[in-house]
Write a protein that binds this DNA or RNA. Structure first.
Lengths: 206, 206
DNA sequence: CAAATATAATGAACAGCGTTAACTAATCTA
DNA sequence: TAGATTAGTTAACGCTGTTCATTATATTTG
């Protein structure tokens, strides 16, 4: 019976409408201005309707978060062309910082806010496809660097964690305006790039 | 005239009452449960009264943030006894992670939330005594390490930023439950410590 | 085809939030 | 003692996420 199929399709379409309206609000007015009521207003439904299609606000934010990861993946499309894994690591770091600075709202949702992880945890076995994939990419590059003895051997998880931590530390401190206390405001971005490069340089020489 | 002096003292005492009630709520029920109304309830005043003593909620959070820094300073009292600056750096890193994991709510306020920085920016020339002091400590240690050629020479701000970024990255990813995607949950804390040690080791060898 | 059922959508409400304006009560000054 | 200053309160505004009971609209069954 094609009727229930069509119904399912309609459901998916309304879900899409809701998410697109959320994203529109999100990019235009920022994370704090995404409210159930404003989304409902935009698509001209009542606020209660959203709860027919999503469990709660966290679930909507989770999907916005996934969109953020897709956006981030777009930043890294050129990576595959780079043969030398350590060069790939440099570019990955640069891209990470650029993505964070250019999309602070998305970055916030993806790596700082609690809300999306609440949904991840509630889901079956905590499925977080895009998030996990990004981490695998990093681990893979580190592993390749070690295999080709471009960096000293060591525990991949430990080193990956440290590298991710530098990048995330820089971006999250920057978008929360903490780095301006360390260097003059107009030098923050430059110093961030210097930092991540210095980090990988150091790693290479060690 | 001692009368206006006594008034000032009373004002200060009520301010203290408000902050202590806030802190009590903060440590017992967490950041999200600190509301103007709950604080007012606790000290048996009306919510509007708080606005006589503080400009807004951000200003209260700023003071809680300062209390957090004092707590953090207590973690580092033993540092002055350590002669070798690189050993001091190791311990500073360990302390930073321990502080963050043991006081996630304070850490959040100090380094993640926007609210306290809003007050800092509104204040005259953005005074943030405790925050700035902590950063000076770090820069000073790095400088000392370079002076004694324990680590390669370089730009102090750049290196300080990188070191802070690793530490902050680890703690903030941990308290936002992102590290569980990289290593098994029960290994997160151990790997964090490994990471920061590995980072300083690498820096030493470079 | 009509009655019963399932689904979609809504209005009203709950309980909370930060904040402000207008007002009362208490205290200090002239 | 009258007037001015200060402390504190009540009531309200405009938000927030979320739920319950109700209506309207399809779809399925007798």
């Amino acid at each position: 019976m094609g009727i229930i199929e069509r119904k399912e399709k309609q459901r998916e379409e309304i879900k899409k409408m809701i998410l697109e309206a959320s994203m529109q609000l999100f990019v235009k007015e920022g994370f704090e201005n995404v409210s159930i009521r404003k989304i409902a207003d935009l698509i001209e439904y009542s606020p209660t309707t959203l709860y027919i299609y999503f469990k709660d606000k966290n679930e909507i934010l989770f999907h916005l978060c996934e969109m953020g990861f897709e956006r981030m993946i777009a930043y890294n499309l050129s990576l595959i062309q780079i043969e030398n894994p350590i060069d790939r690591l440099y570019v990955l770091g640069e891209n990470y910082i650029n993505f964070g600075l250019e999309n602070p709202e998305y970055y916030d949702l993806m790596f700082i806010q609690n809300a999306p992880m609440k949904t991840v945890r509630e889901q079956n076995v905590g499925h977080w496809p895009n998030g996990d994939m990004a981490l695998e990419t990093l681990k893979h590059i580190i592993q390749e660097c070690m295999d080709k003895t471009l960096i000293p051997k060591g525990d991949v998880a430990t080193i990956s964690m440290a590298v991710w931590a530098v990048a995330h530390g820089l971006v999250s401190l920057a978008i929360r305006q903490r780095l301006e206390r360390l260097v003059e405001p107009d030098k923050v971005v430059q110093t961030m790039h210097d930092s991540i490069r210095w980090m990988i340089n150091t790693l290479k020489k060690a």
